Computed example of a mutant assay.
Amino acid sequence: MQIRFIGVLRPAVVLTVLALAALCTTPALGVAPSARQAAIGLPAGVSAGIAVFDRQTGTFTEQFNARARFRSASVVKLLIALDHLWDRGPSYPIPDADRARLDVMLRSSDDGAASAFWDRNGGGAIVERMVARLKLADTAPPPADRPGFWGYTALSAADTVRVYRYLLDEAPAPVRDYIMGNLRASTRCGTDGYDQSFGIAAVFDRPWAVKQGWSGFDSNGCTTDTPAPRKQESAPRPAPADGVDLRRPALHTTGTVGAADRTIVAVFTLHAEGTPYGKAYSDLGEVVRRLNVPGGTHTPGGWFGTWGSGVRVRARATTDSAVLTTLPAGVDVLAGCQKRGQTVTVPPYTNDWWAYLPKYGGYITNIYVSSPGDKLPDIPDC
């Protein structure tokens, strides 16, 4: 039997129900009581702003630093899209070129498309218009010395919930259906090569819709040869006077979960400088798994750490089957079942067991899963 233990196995976490009053006051970023941080599974060195709103009951089920301001990263693309469609009328025919840009911006977080609309529609004026239209309390354009960096727009979890509530309950139906349809069609890989299926997409079964944000990381996952560049908004900068941190890496998951978009989820996180993308991806997932999200169904299986860089997810349990994607280095994965397949040797290890990853629709050799023994504990055979 192969014996190894690489890294620390993250146990499956239990859903924590944290019912809060809809308008409760949230503590300032970084000073929340340690017990509250533990309850939402906030890892050491991670700052967060969280708001979860149940549209069926009209109440928040989670609020934690919900008014804290973060740099938005690509979440601002929601405002860019809404602003572009605002005065076109409910039946406005979107030109093919605009539709193509909007589609790839919303589904695959394309930066070039966002920059095109940003420059065309007035840059920071887009944010100012949307603040006034939606009555956003914490949102502000990028700093004056970085006018083209749309990802430096200040945004809070509470304001993000407001954006989704407008989109779902007040926007013209064609606008709602178009934007939400794109968010439901979110691709695993962004056009910049980052794996963007973290947070909501990693934890819950469909139906869900997501708009993610990431900034300040070196890419892992979704590429097999060369690492992807940093995103447009990712150049590290000191925090400006208004307190929005532009230095620490940011990873955000926002969207809706459940039938009829029952629950709106907005989780903004900042991580210690130098944090690998896979670790931030996993830390964010651990927080999301603990949230009280009405209507959300957790995908069954067990969570395990992985090791190695460029680990391939394959269509079958063989090394000659199609590569579906690659994992961010060191990311936690959900194993649904396992089966014997091709024997693989990665010295000093040899193993013929493969884990099926339901969120990826494929298999990885158990060699790269951080667990003792050839088989994963408590995971059924496929």
Rank of each mutant, 00 (worst) to 15 (best):
I6N: 02
V17K: 06
A22G: 14
P27A: 12
L29P: 11
S34I: 11
A35N: 08
R36M: 15
V46K: 07
V46F: 10
T59I: 14
F60V: 01
F64H: 02
R69Y: 05
D87W: 10
R101H: 06
V104G: 00
A116M: 01
W118P: 12
L134V: 04
R146Q: 11
A157Y: 10
A158V: 03
A158S: 03
R162T: 11
Y164H: 06
D169V: 08
A171Q: 10
P207V: 05
V210R: 00
S215I: 10
D218Q: 14
G221E: 08
P229I: 03
Q232H: 11
E233S: 15
P236T: 04
R237E: 15
V244N: 10
D245L: 02
D245N: 15
A250H: 15
T253M: 00
T254V: 09
A260N: 15
D261E: 14
V267L: 07
V267A: 04
F268E: 00
H271V: 00
E273Q: 11
P276E: 10
P276D: 12
G285M: 07
V293T: 10
T297K: 10
P300A: 10
W303K: 07
S321T: 13
G330E: 00
P348N: 13
P348S: 08
P348W: 09
A355W: 07
L357E: 09
P358K: 12
K359L: 14
G361L: 08
V369N: 02
K375N: 06
C382K: 06
